[in-house]
Structures are given as structure tokens and as C-alpha cells.
Design a protein around this nucleic acid. Structure first.
Lengths: 237, 237
DNA sequence: AGAGAAGTGAGAGCAGTGCTCTCGCAAGGA
DNA sequence: TCCTTGCGAGAGCACTGCTCTCACTTCTCT
């Protein structure tokens, strides 16, 4: 993927083994969950003794990081593919499409979703320098969509009292700089809420927090919620 | 707690040991996280060999269940205490108080919060018959508050298209029956969204999903979000 | 082409985990 | 007083992450 043509056969073999390890790791993650991810079990499935995989992966946390990065990329790719089918000027529809795509991916890959957006795995801290870039791809898509909608006049940011907290204003400036977008404070307030609410809805559904007798038609419920969130953001239906 | 006066000294000793185990378990949960919760470590802190704790707790999952139940009760007690200080007719303020109380508890007890509302611990399934009752206390408070506000005319449910999905309508009937409240479908749609969004905001803050450079003033941000959610629910500011 | 460097896998081993079993001892009820 | 019951200790099994050494292969440099 990253290095399409490896020079020496040894390097090609190494990349093949790396790909096998992450592939088996993803399968174990989906089948048994993150905390049950065992390097020894991966080694067994690879047909190799446990110490051999340490030649490729420094530690169990390292393998988790690989799966985290792959998960973020997979999610962002799914969302980007869904957005590609929607015209660029259908701003509200693009927001709805993004929300639906995130939910669909989470329902399809609950274990990876839990790894990314559930409680952090104890004792494991994802290295920021490797996870923030892929981890922010989806939120970047949403922010850029909102900025485009504002510029086109398709999104009218609801009136709100001005943000008072200086620390909050400063971090909003940081967001504008980091993502290179120009959205007013009140749009960022609403945007962060919509962002967190979107993942709150999905987490409740995927993690079964709605109780044993969950809602009979979660997709219809999510669709209703998405419409409310679109209105919160300022899209007119 | 449950049995205030035990008859025989042996029973009293047993209850004392049980209390010690859950107390140490809570401390370990807070210090090292849920997946790192080790029965052997609890036994060490208790000054006893590991097999001895199996006289009191059937398994590690059993200990987790004890902590889950205690966590739900602790959260619900915190919320109830906060609500007790707000007049019953200050409906919007009661909603805001509930939200603030949940967030404050989550910030204070992040590990327990993660146990309750984070990704489920792999391989562990909380027994519904022991966790649903304490687990629904907070949502019951919110629903009852919303019903009281509707009855008092303090909450005007926003107009929405009627819910079309039969399965969703049926589960809404189930909610009305289970909680013994009478709220229209559109209020339940908004209520569930507000419920999920509330925990989405809190989870993002507690789990650090906002990125390494989190928002400088999370409390102010949460306060703004709570106001939007109150409006979504139908409270007029 | 040959020698040395580097990558690779196997195996043993250490410390930790959940959990089960048996064995003695002490407390409580008959 | 006997004897059932509860309790803690200890050994043990299977598993985990991770480290170390040893042999073997492969690549590279002279």
C-alpha cells in the first residue's frame, strides 16, 4: 500500500508478513474485541511462534495502534466514498449522507468502532502523531461541508449569545487554524454539539445502551435524529 | 447497606469482607481501568491469597457487575441530590441541573463512567436483571421531568412529521409503558436524541476524543451545548 | 566468490492473569 | 460433644506479554 514496489525479496516478504499480521489482528478484533486481542493468538493463526511476531510489531500496543490507524482510514474512506455520490451543492444532503455513512460503518464494524470511539483501552495511549491525522479526516469533511454551505448561503447559523469564555474562543481559533476553515463561533458551538451528538447516537446503538429491548427500528430513529441535528446546525429542511 | 443488621458474627464478617472487596475494586477501577481489574490484585490488597476471594465473588465478571451496579446507583444518587435543590416547577432549570450533574459525576469518576457508558468490556455481558433497574434511574428522572414540564405547559414539543415506522411506534409504546409516563412520539424522538447527545458530549470530553488540544473551557462548551439540547427538547429559554 | 553483517524464527523462561482443586482449621448449630 | 459448614492457604493448569539466546538464512560489501 504505502510502498508499492519493494526492492529486495526480503522486504517484500516483510511487508507481506506485516499485512498478514494486521489482517489477522483485524479479524481477531472483530471476533473477540479489543481487550482480548492477543499477540500469541495472532502468532498461532500466522503459524509462527509468539516471539517471532515481535520482529514485526514492537508490542501489543503497537498492534493496537496499527488497527486504530487502519480503522480511522477505513471509516474516512467509507464516508468519502458516500459523499462522492452526492452533488457538491446539495449541502444538507451531504451532511445527512455523512451521518448515515458513519453510522453504517459503525454498525458494520462494531469492534473497530468501539476501539476508536469507545472507552480507551486501559493502559493504552494511542500515539497522537500517528492517529490524529487519520482520526480527524471525518470531522474535517464535516467542517469543510459546513463552511461550503455557509459560503453558499445554504446554512444559516442560528442566532446565539456570543461565546464569553476566552479559553473557549482561543480554542475555536485553534480549530479554524488547524482545519483552515472560516466558521463563526456559534457555528462551531453547534458543529461540535452535532459532532458529539452524532457519535452519541451511534455509540448508544452500537453499544446497546438503549437497553435490552432496543428500539425496533434504529435506522428510522437515527434518520429522525439526523434531521434534528441538521436543523441544529442551521440547515433548513 | 442492603442488610443493615446481620444476625451471626460470621455473617457480619462476610458482609464486611464483601464491602472491602467492592471498595478495593472501585479503587483499582479508578486507578487502573476496567480491563486491568484483577482479582489477584484485589486479593493482594485485601491481604489474602487469590483463591480466597472466590469464596465471595464467583468470578471477575461478577466483581465487574458489582461495580457496574454501584456505579449506576452512585450516578443516580448524585443526580437526584442535585435535582433535590431545584424547585419542582423550574422545569428547564431541572433539565440543565440533570445534565450538569451527569457531567460532573463523569468527570469525577471517569473510570466508572467508562465502565457504564464506554465500549462494553470484551467478553463481559452485564446481567440485565441486575443492571437495568439502577441503569435506568437517570433516564427515568429525565423522562419524568419532561412529562411534568409538558403537563405544566412549560415544554412545547416542536412540530415534527409523524413517526412512520411501525416498529419504532411500538417501541415508543413500550417506553411509555415501562416508565409509566405519557409523552407524545415527537417528544420521545427529541428526548432520545437529547439523551444520546448528552452522553455523546460527556463521552467525548471524558474520553479525550476532542483531540490532544482539547477545548480550553470544556465546562463552558458543555453549558452552551446543554442550552441547545434544552431547546431541542422544547424548553423555551 | 567469500566474509561479515543483518534479519528471522524457534525455544526457553519470567512474571503475571483467571480459575479449580484439595487440604487443614475454626466457628456454629445439633 | 459431635459434626456440618465456612474459610483461608497452597498447588496447579492454561493462558497472557515480553525478553533472551541460539541457529539459520539472506543480503551486502570487499
Amino acid at each position: 500500500m504505502m510502498t508499492p514496489m519493494a526492492t529486495t525479496p526480503r522486504e517484500r516478504a516483510r511487508e507481506q508478513t506485516m499485512a498478514d499480521i494486521t489482517r489477522i489482528g483485524r479479524r481477531h478484533l472483530a471476533e473477540y474485541g479489543a481487550a482480548a486481542l492477543s499477540l500469541r493468538a495472532v502468532a498461532r493463526d500466522l503459524g509462527v511462534v509468539s516471539s517471532a511476531v515481535y520482529r514485526y510489531v514492537r508490542s501489543r500496543d503497537e498492534l493496537l495502534t496499527l488497527l486504530v490507524v487502519h480503522g480511522y482510514d477505513d471509516l474516512a474512506d467509507s464516508v468519502a466514498a458516500a459523499l462522492a455520490a452526492v452533488p457538491g451543492d446539495a449541502h444538507r444532503e451531504r451532511f445527512l449522507t455523512l451521518g448515515r455513512a458513519v453510522r453504517a460503518w459503525a454498525v458494520r464494524e462494531p469492534a473497530t468502532y468501539a476501539l476508536l470511539y469507545g472507552a480507551p483501552v486501559p493502559g493504552y495511549q494511542a500515539p497522537a502523531e500517528r492517529t490524529t491525522e487519520p482520526g480527524t479526516r471525518v470531522v474535517r469533511m464535516m467542517l469543510e461541508g459546513a463552511a461550503a454551505a455557509v459560503a453558499a448561503g445554504a446554512l444559516v447559523v442560528p442566532d446565539q449569545a456570543p461565546v464569553a469564555s476566552p479559553a473557549l474562543l482561543a480554542s475555536f481559533d485553534g480549530v479554524r487554524t488547524q482545519f483552515g476553515i472560516d466558521l463563526p463561533d456559534s457555528a462551531l458551538v453547534a458543529g461540535v454539539l452535532v459532532w458529539a451528538a452524532l457519535f452519541g447516537c451511534i455509540s448508544f446503538e452500537v453499544f446497546g445502551q438503549y437497553g435490552p429491548d432496543a428500539f425496533g427500528d434504529p435506522e428510522a430513529l437515527f434518520e429522525r435524529h439526523l434531521a434534528i441535528l441538521a436543523a441544529d446546525l442551521g440547515f433548513s429542511s
